[in-house]
Computed example of a mutant assay.
Amino acid sequence: MKIGIFCSANEQLDPDFFTMTEELGRWLATEGHTLVYGGVNSGLMECVARAVKQAGGRTVGVLPQIVVKGGRISDYVDVEMMCDNLSDRKQLMGDRSDVFIALPGGIGTIDEVFTIAAAHTIGYHDKRVILYNMKGFWDDLTAMLDRLQQRGMVRGEWRDYIAVANSLEEISELIKG
């Protein structure tokens, strides 16, 4: 399976996020999954790719030109997919991934999550995003989604498009199911 990972490229994060991301990367590789990610050489992006590679897995980095020009390409990218901008990156990752996992991240990660979920609600695909709720990171977002649901702002049930996992075991079950 090709698993798209959305996550932070920042370094100044809770150390537990890095530990849990390494565990996820090792699991991806040992299960024979391919990592599809942003290809950047910092933060959780670099962490997950390094863990995948060290465990013998394969990575696909989807790289906007601005990342390439800035010299921010990870050494752990097996297949480089160049693109013009972040919109192209999301499209390519969406096309190349079977399922998505969102690790802790900021505005870019949230944008990616909702781009995939919105396309699902309209019927462009049936791929899900799994929020890896490390240490309750996504609790506020899921509370907001619940409020949107209660107010009739979400077509169907938001959990049909976005799943929440509090552990690697839950991620594994969601991907198998």
Results as ranks from 00 to 15, higher is better:
151 R>I: 08
110 I>G: 10
149 Q>T: 07
127 K>M: 11
122 I>F: 14
134 M>C: 02
141 L>W: 12
126 D>G: 12
127 K>Y: 11
137 F>P: 01
158 W>S: 00
108 G>R: 02
116 I>M: 06
136 G>P: 03
136 G>V: 05
154 V>L: 08
128 R>T: 14
155 R>Q: 11
133 N>I: 00
145 L>H: 07
154 V>R: 00
163 A>T: 07
125 H>E: 12
122 I>Q: 14
120 H>R: 13
153 M>F: 14
156 G>Y: 07
120 H>C: 09
146 D>N: 09
129 V>H: 02
133 N>P: 02
151 R>G: 12
115 T>I: 09
113 V>H: 00
164 V>T: 09
149 Q>P: 05
118 A>M: 11
153 M>H: 10
125 H>Y: 08
156 G>T: 09
115 T>M: 09
113 V>Y: 00
110 I>E: 14
125 H>T: 09
163 A>N: 07
166 N>S: 05
136 G>D: 13
119 A>G: 14
119 A>L: 15
158 W>E: 00
130 I>W: 02
106 G>Q: 05
161 Y>E: 08
164 V>C: 05
146 D>G: 04
145 L>R: 05
146 D>W: 01
147 R>K: 13
140 D>F: 06
134 M>Y: 01
164 V>E: 10
131 L>W: 01
123 G>Y: 05
166 N>W: 03
156 G>V: 08
154 V>G: 04
150 Q>T: 04
136 G>Q: 08
125 H>D: 13
146 D>H: 04
161 Y>L: 05
144 M>V: 06
154 V>W: 04
128 R>D: 15
114 F>L: 13
111 D>T: 10
134 M>F: 01
115 T>L: 07
107 I>T: 09
139 D>F: 02
142 T>W: 04
143 A>I: 11
163 A>Y: 07
132 Y>V: 03
157 E>I: 10
123 G>R: 01
148 L>I: 08
160 D>A: 12
112 E>V: 06
119 A>K: 09
111 D>E: 15
127 K>S: 10
157 E>Y: 11
108 G>Q: 06
114 F>W: 08
